[in-house]
Amino acid sequence: MNAPSANASNGHSVSASKSDHPEFFQVRVLRQDQPGGDCYWQRYRVRYESDMNVISVLQRIAAQGVTMDGRAVAPVAWDCNCLEEICGACTMVINGRVRQACSALVDRLLADNPQEIELRPMTKFPVVRDLVVDRSRLFRALQRVRAWIDVDGYQDQGAGPRVSREDQEQAYPLSQCMSCGCCLEACPQYTKIEVLQQAGESAAEAQARTEAAYDHGFMGAHAISQAVLFNTHPTGQMAASQRLEQLTAEGGIQVCGNAQNCVAVCPKQIPLTTSIARAGRAVTVWAWKKWFDR
């Protein structure tokens, strides 16, 4: 799971020899019908086509509607939107590694393992159905660290602050985070929180209980990195102490165990560990300052 991303352009041209591909290949999917339900494996046979990715494999499985042994089954549920690895929706565990299904190319996967392709949902988020998981905790963490600029309003007030090229070049990589959740899946400190609606409980009550549970859990590398992004923006840093407060609260930066898996799996190569180190230093300085200012 913590292998470096194969998305880095390493110059290999895997599919150059397409002639030796199989006519069909096997896909094994870990399915689950509903939250809290049992999971089970199902196998499918998919006809090989050139330029396939895991999304098109799932589309073929949905269209054919039968398992390998010819049993008619409901299509596998999965999440996707842009199919260009920029929206973050289609994250899942493919052949044991967390990544986006759209940029997981069948030729490369079969080159690694000609027997089959294995698809599983992410393990750190509650499964909704099959490969669909509930990542609302991830967005909740962005609220926790106040990942926005507190502008006075949307009226015309002229341009924003001037920013040096150097600062822009530091900020831009952090602002490419697409909230996909790979860094959280790979993190040993980020553990699954699943709150199931109880009998007699309303959806709103369950929601409130869920959010409270999320707010005690680890916020994760992505949220720490966003706090750093906004704390280094000329306007954003005016609210820096509020973010630092959150970073030092329960589930904050102190939970990080420095495993460094996050940076290894990030599909956008965001320097997450650098962000964590910067946040750590800022938190230390801020804590001392707070102590002296008492």
Partner: peptide, 12 residues
């Protein structure tokens, strides 16, 4: 201008 104030990381 507004997007700039909202913190968009425009090239400089």
């Amino acid at each position: 201008d507004l997007l700039d104030r909202l913190g968009v990381t425009f090239n400089r």
